[in-house]
Design a protein around this nucleic acid. Structure first.
Length: 557
DNA sequence: CGCCTTTGACCTGCGC
DNA sequence: GCGCAGGTCAAAGGCG
Protein backbone atom coordinates (compact mmCIF):
# COMPACT_ATOMS: atom_id res chain seq x y z
CA UNK A 1 0.00 0.00 0.00
CA UNK A 2 1.18 3.47 -0.63
CA UNK A 3 -0.26 6.88 -0.70
CA UNK A 4 -0.92 9.13 -3.57
CA UNK A 5 -0.10 12.80 -3.70
CA UNK A 6 -3.10 13.78 -1.68
CA UNK A 7 -2.50 11.34 1.09
CA UNK A 8 -5.08 8.85 0.01
CA UNK A 9 -4.09 5.27 0.22
CA UNK A 10 -4.06 3.07 -2.79
CA UNK A 11 -3.41 -0.62 -3.18
CA UNK A 12 -0.33 -1.41 -5.17
CA UNK A 13 -0.61 -4.61 -7.08
CA UNK A 14 2.55 -5.91 -8.64
CA UNK A 15 1.68 -7.80 -11.73
CA UNK A 16 4.95 -9.40 -12.62
CA UNK A 17 3.63 -11.94 -15.04
CA UNK A 18 1.07 -9.60 -16.42
CA UNK A 19 -2.35 -10.40 -17.66
CA UNK A 20 -1.15 -9.78 -21.15
CA UNK A 21 0.39 -13.17 -21.56
CA UNK A 22 -3.00 -14.77 -21.36
CA UNK A 23 -4.35 -12.51 -23.98
CA UNK A 24 -1.79 -13.74 -26.39
CA UNK A 25 -2.75 -17.36 -26.17
CA UNK A 26 -5.36 -17.26 -28.83
CA UNK A 27 -3.15 -15.21 -31.03
CA UNK A 28 -0.28 -17.55 -30.54
CA UNK A 29 -2.32 -20.58 -31.29
CA UNK A 30 -3.39 -19.19 -34.61
CA UNK A 31 0.16 -18.34 -35.45
CA UNK A 32 1.11 -21.99 -35.32
CA UNK A 33 -0.84 -22.65 -38.43
CA UNK A 34 0.62 -21.87 -41.76
CA UNK A 35 -1.98 -20.58 -44.12
CA UNK A 36 -0.06 -19.49 -47.13
CA UNK A 37 2.85 -20.14 -49.41
CA UNK A 38 6.42 -19.32 -48.62
CA UNK A 39 8.78 -17.27 -50.68
CA UNK A 40 10.23 -20.38 -52.25
CA UNK A 41 6.82 -21.76 -52.97
CA UNK A 42 6.06 -18.77 -55.06
CA UNK A 43 9.28 -18.82 -56.96
CA UNK A 44 9.70 -22.47 -57.69
CA UNK A 45 7.04 -24.95 -56.90
CA UNK A 46 3.42 -24.38 -56.18
CA UNK A 47 0.63 -24.28 -58.71
CA UNK A 48 -0.96 -21.00 -59.53
CA UNK A 49 -3.88 -19.85 -61.51
CA UNK A 50 -3.93 -16.72 -63.59
CA UNK A 51 -6.41 -14.07 -62.65
CA UNK A 52 -8.19 -14.47 -65.98
CA UNK A 53 -9.02 -18.01 -65.06
CA UNK A 54 -6.08 -19.71 -66.71
CA UNK A 55 -4.44 -22.37 -64.64
CA UNK A 56 -0.73 -22.04 -64.14
CA UNK A 57 1.61 -24.66 -62.85
CA UNK A 58 4.88 -22.92 -62.43
CA UNK A 59 7.50 -25.60 -62.14
CA UNK A 60 5.18 -28.55 -62.09
CA UNK A 61 6.30 -29.73 -65.48
CA UNK A 62 9.90 -29.55 -64.43
CA UNK A 63 9.05 -31.59 -61.40
CA UNK A 64 8.10 -34.51 -63.53
CA UNK A 65 5.17 -33.52 -65.63
CA UNK A 66 2.63 -34.05 -62.91
CA UNK A 67 -0.01 -31.48 -63.45
CA UNK A 68 -1.69 -30.17 -60.34
CA UNK A 69 -5.06 -28.60 -60.60
CA UNK A 70 -4.89 -26.56 -57.41
CA UNK A 71 -2.66 -25.62 -54.59
CA UNK A 72 -2.05 -28.76 -52.64
CA UNK A 73 -2.41 -27.66 -49.11
CA UNK A 74 -0.69 -30.67 -47.64
CA UNK A 75 2.32 -30.23 -49.90
CA UNK A 76 2.24 -26.59 -49.20
CA UNK A 77 2.38 -26.98 -45.45
CA UNK A 78 5.02 -29.67 -45.74
CA UNK A 79 7.11 -27.33 -47.79
CA UNK A 80 6.55 -24.51 -45.40
CA UNK A 81 7.67 -26.73 -42.52
CA UNK A 82 10.76 -27.67 -44.48
CA UNK A 83 11.53 -24.07 -45.16
CA UNK A 84 11.11 -23.19 -41.54
CA UNK A 85 13.65 -25.79 -40.50
CA UNK A 86 16.12 -24.80 -43.12
CA UNK A 87 18.68 -22.22 -42.04
CA UNK A 88 18.52 -19.04 -44.04
CA UNK A 89 21.42 -17.74 -45.98
CA UNK A 90 20.74 -14.15 -45.13
CA UNK A 91 23.83 -12.13 -44.48
CA UNK A 92 23.49 -10.75 -41.00
CA UNK A 93 25.53 -7.72 -41.81
CA UNK A 94 23.12 -6.61 -44.46
CA UNK A 95 19.80 -7.90 -43.23
CA UNK A 96 17.71 -5.30 -44.95
CA UNK A 97 18.50 -6.46 -48.43
CA UNK A 98 17.03 -9.87 -48.17
CA UNK A 99 14.14 -8.52 -46.23
CA UNK A 100 13.20 -5.96 -48.75
CA UNK A 101 13.61 -8.47 -51.54
CA UNK A 102 11.47 -10.83 -49.60
CA UNK A 103 8.88 -8.14 -49.43
CA UNK A 104 9.03 -7.72 -53.18
CA UNK A 105 8.87 -11.43 -53.77
CA UNK A 106 6.02 -11.69 -51.35
CA UNK A 107 4.14 -9.00 -53.17
CA UNK A 108 4.50 -10.87 -56.43
CA UNK A 109 3.75 -14.17 -54.84
CA UNK A 110 0.81 -12.91 -52.94
CA UNK A 111 -0.78 -11.56 -56.07
CA UNK A 112 -0.43 -14.93 -57.72
CA UNK A 113 -1.63 -16.72 -54.65
CA UNK A 114 -4.65 -14.46 -54.39
CA UNK A 115 -5.45 -15.05 -58.04
CA UNK A 116 -5.18 -18.74 -57.47
CA UNK A 117 -7.54 -18.71 -54.56
CA UNK A 118 -9.97 -16.51 -56.39
CA UNK A 119 -10.18 -18.73 -59.43
CA UNK A 120 -10.22 -21.82 -57.30
CA UNK A 121 -13.23 -20.46 -55.55
CA UNK A 122 -14.87 -19.72 -58.86
CA UNK A 123 -14.14 -23.25 -59.98
CA UNK A 124 -15.77 -24.64 -56.92
CA UNK A 125 -18.79 -22.53 -57.71
CA UNK A 126 -18.74 -23.82 -61.28
CA UNK A 127 -18.05 -20.45 -62.85
CA UNK A 128 -14.80 -21.54 -64.51
CA UNK A 129 -14.41 -24.71 -66.61
CA UNK A 130 -11.83 -27.14 -65.25
CA UNK A 131 -10.42 -28.31 -68.56
CA UNK A 132 -9.84 -25.15 -70.51
CA UNK A 133 -6.35 -26.14 -71.71
CA UNK A 134 -5.84 -23.15 -73.95
CA UNK A 135 -6.61 -20.69 -71.20
CA UNK A 136 -4.34 -22.58 -68.87
CA UNK A 137 -1.44 -22.49 -71.32
CA UNK A 138 -1.92 -18.83 -72.11
CA UNK A 139 -2.05 -17.94 -68.49
CA UNK A 140 0.94 -20.10 -67.75
CA UNK A 141 3.02 -18.42 -70.45
CA UNK A 142 2.02 -14.98 -69.34
CA UNK A 143 2.80 -15.62 -65.75
CA UNK A 144 6.11 -17.28 -66.52
CA UNK A 145 7.13 -14.27 -68.54
CA UNK A 146 6.03 -11.95 -65.80
CA UNK A 147 7.82 -14.00 -63.21
CA UNK A 148 11.05 -13.97 -65.23
CA UNK A 149 10.79 -10.25 -65.65
CA UNK A 150 10.16 -9.78 -61.96
CA UNK A 151 13.11 -11.98 -61.05
CA UNK A 152 15.33 -9.86 -63.25
CA UNK A 153 13.91 -6.73 -61.75
CA UNK A 154 14.37 -8.23 -58.32
CA UNK A 155 18.03 -8.86 -59.05
CA UNK A 156 18.50 -5.27 -60.13
CA UNK A 157 16.79 -4.05 -57.01
CA UNK A 158 18.99 -6.32 -54.97
CA UNK A 159 22.07 -4.73 -56.47
CA UNK A 160 20.70 -1.27 -55.87
CA UNK A 161 19.87 -2.14 -52.32
CA UNK A 162 23.33 -3.56 -51.80
CA UNK A 163 24.80 -0.26 -52.88
CA UNK A 164 22.36 1.66 -50.76
CA UNK A 165 23.17 -0.47 -47.75
CA UNK A 166 26.87 0.10 -48.22
CA UNK A 167 26.32 3.81 -48.42
CA UNK A 168 24.00 3.59 -45.47
CA UNK A 169 26.58 1.86 -43.30
CA UNK A 170 29.27 4.29 -44.34
CA UNK A 171 27.01 7.21 -43.59
CA UNK A 172 25.90 5.87 -40.25
CA UNK A 173 29.53 5.35 -39.24
CA UNK A 174 30.31 8.87 -40.29
CA UNK A 175 27.26 10.14 -38.47
CA UNK A 176 28.32 8.31 -35.36
CA UNK A 177 31.61 10.11 -35.45
CA UNK A 178 29.86 13.44 -35.88
CA UNK A 179 27.47 12.71 -33.03
CA UNK A 180 30.35 11.77 -30.77
CA UNK A 181 32.19 14.93 -31.67
CA UNK A 182 29.06 16.94 -31.08
CA UNK A 183 28.51 15.32 -27.69
CA UNK A 184 32.05 16.16 -26.69
CA UNK A 185 31.50 19.76 -27.78
CA UNK A 186 28.23 19.93 -25.90
CA UNK A 187 29.90 18.58 -22.82
CA UNK A 188 32.71 21.09 -23.10
CA UNK A 189 30.19 23.85 -23.60
CA UNK A 190 28.23 22.75 -20.54
CA UNK A 191 31.37 22.74 -18.44
CA UNK A 192 32.24 26.19 -19.74
CA UNK A 193 28.74 27.53 -19.08
CA UNK A 194 28.77 25.95 -15.67
CA UNK A 195 31.99 27.65 -14.65
CA UNK A 196 30.81 30.92 -16.18
CA UNK A 197 27.59 30.71 -14.19
CA UNK A 198 29.53 30.17 -11.03
CA UNK A 199 31.72 33.17 -11.79
CA UNK A 200 28.65 35.21 -12.61
CA UNK A 201 27.04 34.16 -9.40
CA UNK A 202 30.11 34.99 -7.38
CA UNK A 203 30.07 38.44 -8.92
CA UNK A 204 26.40 38.94 -8.18
CA UNK A 205 26.69 37.88 -4.58
CA UNK A 206 29.89 39.76 -3.97
CA UNK A 207 28.37 41.57 -1.01
CA UNK A 208 27.34 38.48 0.88
CA UNK A 209 30.64 36.91 0.04
CA UNK A 210 32.36 39.80 1.61
CA UNK A 211 30.07 39.57 4.56
CA UNK A 212 30.73 35.91 4.75
CA UNK A 213 34.40 36.53 4.60
CA UNK A 214 34.09 38.95 7.42
CA UNK A 215 32.08 36.66 9.56
CA UNK A 216 33.75 34.80 12.35
CA UNK A 217 35.19 31.50 11.33
CA UNK A 218 33.19 28.47 12.42
CA UNK A 219 35.86 27.48 14.78
CA UNK A 220 35.79 30.82 16.47
CA UNK A 221 32.02 30.85 16.79
CA UNK A 222 30.23 29.38 19.68
CA UNK A 223 28.08 26.42 18.68
CA UNK A 224 24.82 28.28 19.20
CA UNK A 225 26.06 31.69 18.30
CA UNK A 226 23.84 33.53 15.87
CA UNK A 227 25.23 35.07 12.81
CA UNK A 228 23.31 37.70 10.88
CA UNK A 229 24.05 39.30 7.60
CA UNK A 230 22.40 40.80 4.59
CA UNK A 231 22.41 40.34 0.86
CA UNK A 232 21.84 42.96 -1.75
CA UNK A 233 20.12 41.54 -4.76
CA UNK A 234 21.72 43.19 -7.74
CA UNK A 235 18.71 42.43 -9.82
CA UNK A 236 16.02 43.90 -7.63
CA UNK A 237 18.25 46.16 -5.51
CA UNK A 238 16.60 44.80 -2.46
CA UNK A 239 18.44 44.09 0.73
CA UNK A 240 17.76 40.70 2.18
CA UNK A 241 18.83 39.65 5.59
CA UNK A 242 19.84 36.19 6.59
CA UNK A 243 20.64 34.37 9.72
CA UNK A 244 22.35 31.10 10.44
CA UNK A 245 20.18 29.86 13.23
CA UNK A 246 17.21 28.52 11.32
CA UNK A 247 19.11 27.11 8.44
CA UNK A 248 18.61 23.48 7.71
CA UNK A 249 21.41 21.07 7.13
CA UNK A 250 20.84 20.78 3.43
CA UNK A 251 18.38 21.95 0.87
CA UNK A 252 17.88 19.29 -1.71
CA UNK A 253 15.60 21.43 -3.81
CA UNK A 254 16.57 22.18 -7.34
CA UNK A 255 16.66 25.83 -6.54
CA UNK A 256 19.00 25.73 -3.67
CA UNK A 257 21.45 22.97 -4.21
CA UNK A 258 23.86 24.54 -6.61
CA UNK A 259 24.00 27.95 -5.03
CA UNK A 260 24.17 26.54 -1.60
CA UNK A 261 27.24 24.60 -2.51
CA UNK A 262 28.83 27.68 -4.02
CA UNK A 263 28.23 29.82 -1.00
CA UNK A 264 29.15 27.27 1.55
CA UNK A 265 32.16 25.84 -0.13
CA UNK A 266 35.01 26.45 2.19
CA UNK A 267 32.93 28.74 4.33
CA UNK A 268 31.14 26.39 6.60
CA UNK A 269 28.00 28.46 6.86
CA UNK A 270 24.62 26.88 6.57
CA UNK A 271 22.82 29.04 4.08
CA UNK A 272 19.69 27.24 3.03
CA UNK A 273 17.44 29.92 4.38
CA UNK A 274 19.49 32.45 2.53
CA UNK A 275 19.14 30.44 -0.60
CA UNK A 276 15.42 30.20 -0.15
CA UNK A 277 15.23 33.93 0.15
CA UNK A 278 17.15 34.63 -3.00
CA UNK A 279 15.04 33.23 -5.79
CA UNK A 280 16.07 36.03 -8.10
CA UNK A 281 19.67 35.02 -7.84
CA UNK A 282 19.02 31.52 -8.85
CA UNK A 283 19.13 31.50 -12.57
CA UNK A 284 21.58 30.21 -15.11
CA UNK A 285 22.00 26.48 -14.96
CA UNK A 286 19.24 25.84 -12.49
CA UNK A 287 16.70 27.55 -14.64
CA UNK A 288 17.95 25.48 -17.53
CA UNK A 289 17.34 22.39 -15.51
CA UNK A 290 13.91 23.61 -14.60
CA UNK A 291 13.17 24.35 -18.21
CA UNK A 292 14.35 20.91 -19.10
CA UNK A 293 12.15 19.31 -16.47
CA UNK A 294 9.20 21.43 -17.44
CA UNK A 295 9.59 20.44 -21.05
CA UNK A 296 9.96 16.81 -20.13
CA UNK A 297 6.82 17.18 -18.12
CA UNK A 298 4.97 18.85 -20.95
CA UNK A 299 6.25 16.69 -23.78
CA UNK A 300 3.59 14.18 -24.64
CA UNK A 301 3.39 10.89 -26.36
CA UNK A 302 0.10 9.98 -27.90
CA UNK A 303 -0.71 6.41 -28.90
CA UNK A 304 -3.56 5.72 -31.27
CA UNK A 305 -4.91 2.18 -31.27
CA UNK A 306 -8.16 0.54 -32.20
CA UNK A 307 -9.90 -0.78 -29.16
CA UNK A 308 -13.33 -1.37 -27.73
CA UNK A 309 -11.97 -1.33 -24.22
CA UNK A 310 -12.23 1.91 -22.25
CA UNK A 311 -8.44 2.07 -21.76
CA UNK A 312 -5.37 0.17 -22.85
CA UNK A 313 -3.59 -2.00 -20.34
CA UNK A 314 -0.04 -0.69 -20.25
CA UNK A 315 1.01 -2.33 -17.02
CA UNK A 316 0.83 0.77 -14.85
CA UNK A 317 -1.72 1.55 -12.18
CA UNK A 318 -3.77 4.64 -12.68
CA UNK A 319 -6.23 6.65 -10.67
CA UNK A 320 -8.81 8.61 -12.53
CA UNK A 321 -8.90 12.15 -11.27
CA UNK A 322 -11.06 13.90 -13.76
CA UNK A 323 -13.13 13.77 -16.85
CA UNK A 324 -13.88 16.58 -19.21
CA UNK A 325 -15.66 17.06 -22.45
CA UNK A 326 -13.23 18.50 -24.91
CA UNK A 327 -14.32 20.90 -27.57
CA UNK A 328 -15.08 19.30 -30.89
CA UNK A 329 -15.29 15.77 -29.55
CA UNK A 330 -18.51 14.19 -28.32
CA UNK A 331 -16.51 11.70 -26.28
CA UNK A 332 -15.25 12.88 -22.90
CA UNK A 333 -11.57 12.90 -22.08
CA UNK A 334 -10.54 11.05 -18.95
CA UNK A 335 -7.56 12.10 -16.86
CA UNK A 336 -5.47 9.56 -14.99
CA UNK A 337 -2.58 9.86 -12.60
CA UNK A 338 0.01 7.13 -11.97
CA UNK A 339 -0.50 5.67 -8.50
CA UNK A 340 2.46 3.33 -8.41
CA UNK A 341 4.50 5.74 -6.33
CA UNK A 342 3.95 8.79 -4.25
CA UNK A 343 4.17 11.98 -6.28
CA UNK A 344 4.78 10.21 -9.55
CA UNK A 345 4.39 13.01 -12.11
CA UNK A 346 3.12 10.83 -14.92
CA UNK A 347 -0.35 11.64 -16.25
CA UNK A 348 -2.41 9.88 -18.83
CA UNK A 349 -5.31 11.10 -20.89
CA UNK A 350 -7.66 8.73 -22.62
CA UNK A 351 -10.07 9.81 -25.28
CA UNK A 352 -11.81 8.33 -28.27
CA UNK A 353 -11.07 9.81 -31.63
CA UNK A 354 -13.81 12.13 -32.80
CA UNK A 355 -13.55 10.98 -36.42
CA UNK A 356 -13.31 7.28 -35.69
CA UNK A 357 -14.62 6.30 -32.30
CA UNK A 358 -13.14 2.84 -32.56
CA UNK A 359 -9.75 4.50 -32.16
CA UNK A 360 -8.59 5.05 -28.62
CA UNK A 361 -6.11 7.86 -28.11
CA UNK A 362 -3.95 7.50 -25.02
CA UNK A 363 -1.66 10.38 -24.23
CA UNK A 364 1.20 10.05 -21.77
CA UNK A 365 2.96 12.91 -20.10
CA UNK A 366 5.96 12.85 -17.81
CA UNK A 367 8.48 10.30 -16.64
CA UNK A 368 7.94 7.83 -13.84
CA UNK A 369 9.98 8.47 -10.70
CA UNK A 370 9.87 4.87 -9.55
CA UNK A 371 10.67 1.38 -10.67
CA UNK A 372 8.17 -0.26 -12.93
CA UNK A 373 6.85 -3.76 -13.35
CA UNK A 374 8.10 -5.45 -16.53
CA UNK A 375 4.79 -5.00 -18.25
CA UNK A 376 4.89 -1.26 -17.72
CA UNK A 377 8.54 -0.66 -18.29
CA UNK A 378 8.55 -0.48 -22.03
CA UNK A 379 5.66 1.92 -22.34
CA UNK A 380 7.48 4.13 -19.91
CA UNK A 381 10.53 3.86 -22.12
CA UNK A 382 8.66 5.02 -25.14
CA UNK A 383 7.23 8.02 -23.37
CA UNK A 384 10.62 8.90 -22.01
CA UNK A 385 12.34 8.35 -25.32
CA UNK A 386 9.76 10.32 -27.21
CA UNK A 387 9.81 13.08 -24.64
CA UNK A 388 13.56 13.30 -24.96
CA UNK A 389 13.19 13.24 -28.68
CA UNK A 390 10.77 16.13 -28.46
CA UNK A 391 13.00 17.89 -26.01
CA UNK A 392 15.88 17.87 -28.41
CA UNK A 393 13.60 19.49 -30.95
CA UNK A 394 11.75 21.72 -28.59
CA UNK A 395 13.96 24.75 -28.88
CA UNK A 396 11.88 25.88 -31.78
CA UNK A 397 8.44 25.09 -32.97
CA UNK A 398 9.53 24.75 -36.53
CA UNK A 399 10.54 21.17 -36.23
CA UNK A 400 14.19 21.90 -36.80
CA UNK A 401 14.91 19.64 -33.90
CA UNK A 402 14.35 16.86 -36.30
CA UNK A 403 17.62 17.81 -37.89
CA UNK A 404 19.37 17.02 -34.67
CA UNK A 405 21.49 13.94 -35.32
CA UNK A 406 20.12 12.48 -32.13
CA UNK A 407 16.69 12.60 -33.65
CA UNK A 408 17.30 9.92 -36.20
CA UNK A 409 14.45 7.95 -34.84
CA UNK A 410 12.11 10.83 -35.39
CA UNK A 411 13.42 11.45 -38.84
CA UNK A 412 13.17 7.84 -39.76
CA UNK A 413 9.60 7.41 -38.64
CA UNK A 414 8.47 10.84 -39.58
CA UNK A 415 9.46 11.43 -43.15
CA UNK A 416 7.71 14.12 -45.09
CA UNK A 417 4.69 12.07 -45.77
CA UNK A 418 1.10 12.44 -44.85
CA UNK A 419 0.93 8.73 -44.13
CA UNK A 420 3.56 8.77 -41.42
CA UNK A 421 3.10 6.35 -38.58
CA UNK A 422 4.26 8.94 -36.11
CA UNK A 423 3.82 12.67 -36.17
CA UNK A 424 5.04 15.59 -34.16
CA UNK A 425 2.54 18.29 -33.53
CA UNK A 426 4.11 21.71 -33.28
CA UNK A 427 0.81 23.54 -33.18
CA UNK A 428 -0.47 21.72 -30.10
CA UNK A 429 -0.07 23.53 -26.78
CA UNK A 430 2.44 20.88 -25.77
CA UNK A 431 4.95 19.18 -28.03
CA UNK A 432 3.34 15.88 -28.85
CA UNK A 433 4.50 12.84 -30.76
CA UNK A 434 1.71 10.61 -32.00
CA UNK A 435 2.29 6.93 -32.62
CA UNK A 436 -0.38 5.59 -34.89
CA UNK A 437 -0.85 1.89 -34.26
CA UNK A 438 -4.03 1.77 -36.25
CA UNK A 439 -1.81 1.39 -39.32
CA UNK A 440 0.58 -1.34 -38.21
CA UNK A 441 -0.55 -3.51 -41.12
CA UNK A 442 0.94 -1.02 -43.51
CA UNK A 443 4.25 -2.47 -44.75
CA UNK A 444 5.59 1.03 -45.32
CA UNK A 445 5.09 1.91 -41.70
CA UNK A 446 6.49 -1.41 -40.61
CA UNK A 447 9.56 -0.78 -42.71
CA UNK A 448 9.91 2.71 -41.30
CA UNK A 449 9.83 1.47 -37.76
CA UNK A 450 12.36 -1.15 -38.60
CA UNK A 451 14.60 1.37 -40.25
CA UNK A 452 14.25 3.71 -37.34
CA UNK A 453 15.13 1.06 -34.81
CA UNK A 454 18.04 -0.16 -36.83
CA UNK A 455 19.35 3.33 -37.22
CA UNK A 456 19.05 4.00 -33.52
CA UNK A 457 20.73 0.75 -32.67
CA UNK A 458 23.43 1.18 -35.23
CA UNK A 459 24.26 4.52 -33.72
CA UNK A 460 24.01 3.34 -30.19
CA UNK A 461 26.03 0.23 -30.71
CA UNK A 462 28.88 -0.21 -33.09
CA UNK A 463 27.58 1.16 -36.26
CA UNK A 464 26.55 -2.20 -37.59
CA UNK A 465 23.20 -3.86 -37.51
CA UNK A 466 24.51 -7.05 -36.05
CA UNK A 467 23.53 -6.43 -32.49
CA UNK A 468 19.98 -5.40 -33.09
CA UNK A 469 17.28 -7.98 -32.65
CA UNK A 470 15.51 -8.06 -35.95
CA UNK A 471 12.02 -8.45 -34.76
CA UNK A 472 10.07 -7.11 -37.59
CA UNK A 473 10.84 -9.42 -40.41
CA UNK A 474 14.41 -10.55 -40.20
CA UNK A 475 14.94 -14.27 -39.88
CA UNK A 476 16.06 -15.06 -36.37
CA UNK A 477 19.24 -17.05 -36.43
CA UNK A 478 19.86 -19.22 -33.46
CA UNK A 479 22.50 -17.00 -31.88
CA UNK A 480 20.44 -13.99 -32.67
CA UNK A 481 17.38 -15.44 -31.08
CA UNK A 482 19.38 -15.92 -27.96
CA UNK A 483 20.56 -12.38 -28.08
CA UNK A 484 17.08 -11.15 -28.69
CA UNK A 485 15.73 -13.26 -25.92
CA UNK A 486 18.32 -11.99 -23.51
CA UNK A 487 17.72 -8.45 -24.51
CA UNK A 488 14.03 -8.87 -24.21
CA UNK A 489 14.45 -10.34 -20.81
CA UNK A 490 16.82 -7.67 -19.68
CA UNK A 491 14.55 -5.02 -21.02
CA UNK A 492 11.85 -6.25 -18.78
CA UNK A 493 9.22 -6.86 -21.35
CA UNK A 494 9.36 -10.47 -20.30
CA UNK A 495 6.82 -12.87 -21.57
CA UNK A 496 5.03 -10.25 -23.58
CA UNK A 497 8.13 -9.66 -25.62
CA UNK A 498 8.88 -13.34 -25.73
CA UNK A 499 5.42 -14.03 -27.06
CA UNK A 500 5.90 -11.41 -29.64
CA UNK A 501 9.26 -12.78 -30.64
CA UNK A 502 7.88 -16.28 -30.72
CA UNK A 503 5.05 -15.16 -32.89
CA UNK A 504 7.33 -13.22 -35.15
CA UNK A 505 9.80 -16.05 -35.44
CA UNK A 506 7.01 -18.39 -36.36
CA UNK A 507 5.40 -16.14 -38.87
CA UNK A 508 8.35 -14.15 -40.06
CA UNK A 509 11.22 -16.53 -40.46
CA UNK A 510 10.05 -17.43 -43.89
CA UNK A 511 7.23 -15.01 -44.45
CA UNK A 512 5.18 -17.96 -45.43
CA UNK A 513 2.17 -15.99 -46.29
CA UNK A 514 1.68 -12.35 -46.71
CA UNK A 515 -2.00 -12.92 -46.28
CA UNK A 516 -1.33 -14.58 -42.97
CA UNK A 517 0.88 -11.75 -41.89
CA UNK A 518 -1.57 -9.14 -42.97
CA UNK A 519 -4.32 -10.79 -41.03
CA UNK A 520 -2.07 -11.05 -38.01
CA UNK A 521 -1.05 -7.44 -38.33
CA UNK A 522 -4.68 -6.50 -38.52
CA UNK A 523 -5.29 -8.57 -35.44
CA UNK A 524 -2.43 -6.78 -33.77
CA UNK A 525 -3.91 -3.45 -34.59
CA UNK A 526 -7.29 -4.58 -33.35
CA UNK A 527 -6.09 -6.26 -30.20
CA UNK A 528 -5.65 -3.73 -27.47
CA UNK A 529 -3.37 -5.88 -25.38
CA UNK A 530 -1.25 -6.83 -28.26
CA UNK A 531 -1.09 -3.28 -29.41
CA UNK A 532 0.13 -2.29 -26.01
CA UNK A 533 2.63 -5.12 -26.12
CA UNK A 534 3.72 -4.09 -29.54
CA UNK A 535 4.25 -0.56 -28.39
CA UNK A 536 6.06 -1.89 -25.38
CA UNK A 537 8.37 -3.98 -27.41
CA UNK A 538 8.89 -1.21 -29.86
CA UNK A 539 9.63 1.26 -27.17
CA UNK A 540 12.03 -1.11 -25.54
CA UNK A 541 13.96 -1.34 -28.72
CA UNK A 542 13.78 2.40 -29.11
CA UNK A 543 14.96 3.09 -25.64
CA UNK A 544 17.35 0.21 -25.29
CA UNK A 545 20.49 2.27 -25.65
CA UNK A 546 19.29 5.74 -25.07
CA UNK A 547 16.93 7.23 -22.62
CA UNK A 548 15.38 3.88 -22.04
CA UNK A 549 18.43 2.95 -20.02
CA UNK A 550 16.87 4.61 -17.07
CA UNK A 551 14.02 2.21 -17.27
CA UNK A 552 16.04 -0.88 -17.84
CA UNK A 553 17.60 -1.05 -14.48
CA UNK A 554 14.72 -2.42 -12.52
CA UNK A 555 14.35 -5.53 -14.52
CA UNK A 556 17.94 -6.11 -15.43
CA UNK A 557 19.05 -6.00 -11.84
C1' DC B 1 -14.96 0.69 5.68
C1' DG B 2 -11.90 1.99 2.24
C1' DC B 3 -11.05 2.71 -2.41
C1' DC B 4 -12.50 4.40 -6.74
C1' DT B 5 -15.30 7.09 -9.89
C1' DT B 6 -18.12 10.93 -10.80
C1' DT B 7 -18.86 15.62 -11.36
C1' DG B 8 -19.24 20.46 -10.44
C1' DA B 9 -16.19 24.03 -9.01
C1' DC B 10 -12.00 26.17 -9.38
C1' DC B 11 -7.51 27.43 -11.49
C1' DT B 12 -4.66 28.78 -15.31
C1' DG B 13 -3.22 30.11 -19.78
C1' DC B 14 -4.34 32.20 -23.99
C1' DG B 15 -6.59 34.98 -27.47
C1' DC B 16 -9.37 38.90 -28.41
C1' DG C 1 -10.33 42.70 -18.59
C1' DC C 2 -13.18 39.16 -20.24
C1' DG C 3 -14.45 34.82 -22.03
C1' DC C 4 -13.19 30.31 -23.35
C1' DA C 5 -11.08 25.89 -23.03
C1' DG C 6 -8.09 22.68 -20.90
C1' DG C 7 -6.61 20.85 -16.72
C1' DT C 8 -7.02 19.84 -11.72
C1' DC C 9 -9.22 19.55 -7.21
C1' DA C 10 -12.06 17.58 -3.88
C1' DA C 11 -16.60 16.43 -1.99
C1' DA C 12 -20.07 13.07 -2.63
C1' DG C 13 -21.67 8.79 -3.74
C1' DG C 14 -21.15 3.97 -5.41
C1' DC C 15 -19.26 -0.48 -4.97
C1' DG C 16 -17.05 -4.61 -3.18
Amino acid sequence: MDKDGRGRRSLEITDSSGSKSGSFDSFNSTSNRSTGPSDDDFSSGISFLAKDGGRVDDGCVAEGGRKRVAVDEMDFFAKAEKNQARPTSTDQDVPDLSLQNEDLAMNIGFRLFSANLEVEQQMVQGQVPHDDEKTVNNGLARLRAELARMKEENQQLKNTLQKAADNYNALSSHLMKLVQEQNIKIHEHEVEVDSRNKEEYNERVVVPKQLLDLRPSPSSMAPNEEFHGSVRDEGTHEDRSFCNIDAEETTPSMDGKEVSSVITSGQGLKTSSLVQEMPNLLHSKNSDQQDHEATMRKARVSVRARSDAPTINDGCHWRKYGQKKAKGNPCPRAYFRCTMAENCPVRRQVQRCAEDQSVLITTYEGTHNHELPPAAMAMASITSAAASMLLSGSTTSTGEGLMNPNNLLARAIMPNSSSSMAMISASAPFPTVTLDLTQTQNPIHRQRWKTALQFQASLANTGSFASLPQVFDQPLHSNKSTLSGLQMSSMGVGDVGAKFLQLKSQSSTQWRSLADTVSKATAIANDTNFTAAFVSWLSTAMGCKGDGDTHQTADSK
